[in-house]
Design a protein around this nucleic acid. Structure first.
Lengths: 148, 148
DNA sequence: CTCTATGGTCAAGCTGCTTGACCATTACGT
DNA sequence: ACGTAATGGTCAAGCAGCTTGACCATAGAG
């Protein structure tokens, strides 16, 4: 594959990713969750299963732990998460989603599903699943870099 | 497709996009083009064919024209582009890439090709082309939003 | 039971974006 | 033509989110 073709593929991927991010964020805001930015969504993804420490969150987001701490301040202040004592390490705090945080996460899933349904109308269900499988097998582990 | 599946697909897409952006940027820097950020790359894409005005660039990047103007200041100062008189509109200026700007664009294409080759080793050439076709048909027109 | 490493926060600074104001040129309405 | 509004662009100030640097509390290693 030629370099220019690789760049065309890259551009298409980044365009789709940019639009997806924007539409999910708009969908979340439209469902009444104010003051939420895409970076918060990436944080929620990491917090959702069982919570995480500030340091773990920082690694997931690819920022300093100070920045992650500030982000946690913000979502705590807005009622989406809370800091709890960490079981087994008195230094650490476990950040967990509140019920409102979970509701926000569900809203993001709904918004994502809306966008993906639109893809399904263009590509068909089978191709969307193929896309999922392909992206899943080339996606890096663990970390998401919301910076570009 | 369930909401949680749509979110998993979205997460994979965004993870791939984030890694791609990072790797392209690293590749460009490694080829000796300093002081370049991903946002510059998105600008170069718009400037490459025939140049563009600041306002057009702002629309492409999804930022204010003041921000686009500052970005142009920066890439002009670093020697990647220059402002020329606009033929046919004395208010406007046409921003065009310099030879160094073109060299940087080619470096970005090489870096993108490296990443895509890696995908080819996992998926195979045919699937990568399928990915390209699928993404191309769901990509939005014109604008890229480098904000999330 | 020191000594070092780790989790977390506070404080200050920087960068890239925004809003607001303004000038030059163009397009429109009469 | 001519005056008014719209458009392209820049200057200036402010702000939000990130960084670096310093620091404290607890954990783990010897």
């Amino acid at each position: 594959m030629q370099n220019s073709e690789a760049m065309a593929l890259s551009t298409a991927l980044l365009a789709v990713a940019g639009e997806l991010t924007q539409r999910i964020n708009e969908g979340v805001l439209a469902r009444g969750f104010e003051g939420i930015r895409p970076a918060h969504g990436f944080a929620f993804v990491r917090l959702a299963p069982d919570g995480a420490t500030v340091t773990e969150l920082a690694a997931h987001l690819g920022v300093t732990k100070q920045a992650a701490s500030q982000l946690v301040d913000e979502i705590v202040r807005k009622g989406y998460a809370e800091r709890r004592a960490h079981p087994g390490d008195a230094r650490a705090r476990l950040i967990v989603l509140t019920e409102r945080g979970w509701a926000c996460t569900r809203a993001a899933e709904e918004a994502a599903a809306e966008v993906v349904r639109g893809w399904g109308q263009v590509l068909g269900e089978g191709e969307v699943r193929a896309l999922w499988r392909q992206l899943g097998s080339i996606a890096p582990y663990g970390r998401i870099r919301p910076t570009w």
